[in-house]
């Protein structure tokens, strides 16, 4: 899982404030929270000396279909569909106390994680505890995965 220091180390670390933040560290924190984009840092985007780091950061934060808005990535090739994350996710448990909370098939459409055809898929990610202003660093789905198939960026 990417942490704020890793992101910070890839930034120019000049505290130039062009992005509107007071420090590169503040920008790194907001980048992790997905409040800003890599391209909002104009030096890293435009200056040749940062070209490698720009590439690394864009790879980390690429907005493909695989990465949900909460920054959740499921490495499908590692997922065995065991469903540990589905049952351990506290949001799933509170939304579906008669289904996934008991280890059974989901009975609610509000669940964040469910196993479709052998692989875990996410939906309703705005419900994830790592999403939005009030977010907390919940890691229930990460620590219960036997194959490190879930990651948050």
């Amino acid at each position: 899982m990417t942490n704020v220091m890793e992101v910070y180390n890839l930034l120019p670390k000049t505290n130039c404030k062009e992005c509107g933040k007071s420090t590169c560290m503040a920008f790194a924190v907001d980048l992790l929270a997905r409040k800003v984009k890599v391209d909002d840092c104009s030096p890293i985007k435009n200056e040749n000396q940062y070209i490698e780091n720009y590439q690394k950061l864009t790879d980390l934060f690429k907005t493909s279909d695989d990465v949900s808005e909460a920054g959740l990535i499921v490495h499908e090739e590692k997922c065995t569909g065991c469903g540990n994350c589905v049952v351990a996710c506290p949001v799933n448990v509170s939304h579906d106390p008669k289904g996934v909370a008991l280890g059974k098939a989901p009975k609610s459409n509000k669940v964040i994680l469910r196993v479709i055809d052998g692989v875990v898929k996410s939906s309703n990610v705005h419900e994830c505890r790592r999403f939005g202003e009030e977010k907390i660093l919940c890691n229930a789905c990460i620590v219960t995965c036997p194959n490190k198939a879930i990651e948050f960026v």
Binding site: C82, G83, L102, G103
Partner: peptide, 13 residues
């Protein structure tokens, strides 16, 4: 694969 999610470690009982 589903032993822990369905019965053993993770579900509420």
């Amino acid at each position: 694969p589903r032993l822990n999610s369905k019965y053993a470690y993770y579900p509420r009982g």
